[in-house]
Design a protein around this nucleic acid. Structure first.
Lengths: 190, 190
DNA sequence: CACGGTTTTCAGTATTTTCTGAAAACAACC
DNA sequence: GGTTGTTTTCAGAAAATACTGAAAACCGTG
């Protein structure tokens, strides 16, 4: 990032961009893509490619590709300004909508392919015919994996469904059960 | 992986190792580390470094580092065999225990540092003094992020707590609420 | 405390991923 | 349909990451 102005807000923005970029890369997302998203989110402004290039000191190509990826993820949108040919970009500002989009997209890109593989592997394994104890155990491990990932898929589909809400509801629900269980504990239910 | 034997089980194992390795790298974990884990999990055996080196065709150094990381994550354990000086490694076989360990570790490594940054950023931002509308909006965005990540932290701590169970319980809970809501929907509650 | 078996470390190398920049494609306007 | 401002693409360059292999450290034993 360029060392533009140094009022607290600008510094806060830069720091957030950095922190979000780091988190992104720990989660298998390109640092720059996460930083572009961070910048759009934290400023809340509609920025054009040149704004982003300047502020993050990245090339046009990189900015373009990152933006396209963010638009594909559904957490950044294209806009236009009257009398200006350029495209501008704004980040989804509702944090729950954003969270839903991210979780949904990761499900689609990573969990679903894994599940597909697991299903294939299951078929393959079950063709083994012989039923030694070792094979039984192997099959059970595969089953367990299928079960947990199907559960994850189900939960995500339910709570991150396109229809909306749900994640917040889940949070409430879990949170409630949290406090309820704590009370139970205090009252001596094991 | 070496093209050892080609009975369906061995092939299934190899395929699982590959699939798990891919998923791992999509989630910011080194491919090899995920593959080593996959191998230990899917065979269920206690394997020594040389077994792993041979099966995955990796160097001793790589095997050693991957294993140490897996042990740090708490999803692989060291063991020994009578009359054998070598160390052997076994994967946690309970899939829920494994899931808890993974989630807990990621919380610690990625969410907590992010939260620490967000707190700092919040302090920084609030020092701004001036209270223009833009600054208000900025502060609110930071607040929202802090709120959502603190919620995540809370939920994870609750359901992935060292004490155990909990994740399954959460799954049940969510699953129930899922089926309940579906029924509600069928009955025409919007 | 020297030896053989084993594990860890880490400098250097290889691989993968990301980024750049210039050229091509596009699109609004005249 | 040519001009101009803008975006996309992508081959090659740079950076980041992961891996190797050999040396060092470790460790139980005689």
């Amino acid at each position: 990032m360029a060392n533009h102005g140094d009022n607290p807000i600008t510094e806060a923005e830069d720091r957030f961009v950095t922190a979000w970029g780091q988190m992104g890369s720990a989660w298998g997302i390109s640092r720059t893509m996460a930083e572009v998203h961070a910048l759009l989110y934290i400023t809340g402004d509609a920025l054009c490619t040149d704004d982003i290039m300047a502020r993050l000191e990245i090339s046009r190509g990189n900015a373009s590709m990152s933006l396209r990826a963010l638009v594909d993820w559904g957490i950044v949108f294209r806009t236009h300004k009257r009398g200006d040919r350029k495209e501008y970009f704004v980040a989804e500002q509702d944090i729950w909508t954003m969270a839903r989009a991210i979780v949904r997209e990761r499900l689609k890109r990573e969990v679903e392919p894994l599940l597909a593989s697991l299903h294939e592997i299951r078929d393959l394994s079950s063709k083994s015919g012989a039923e030694t104890e070792a094979i039984e155990a192997h099959n059970e491990r595969i089953e367990n994996l299928v079960a947990i990932f199907e559960l994850i898929e189900l939960l995500v589909q339910r709570f991150v469904s396109p229809s909306g809400e749900g994640l917040e509801a889940a949070a409430m629900l879990l949170n409630q059960s949290h406090t309820r269980d704590e009370r139970d504990e205090r009252e001596g239910r094991g």
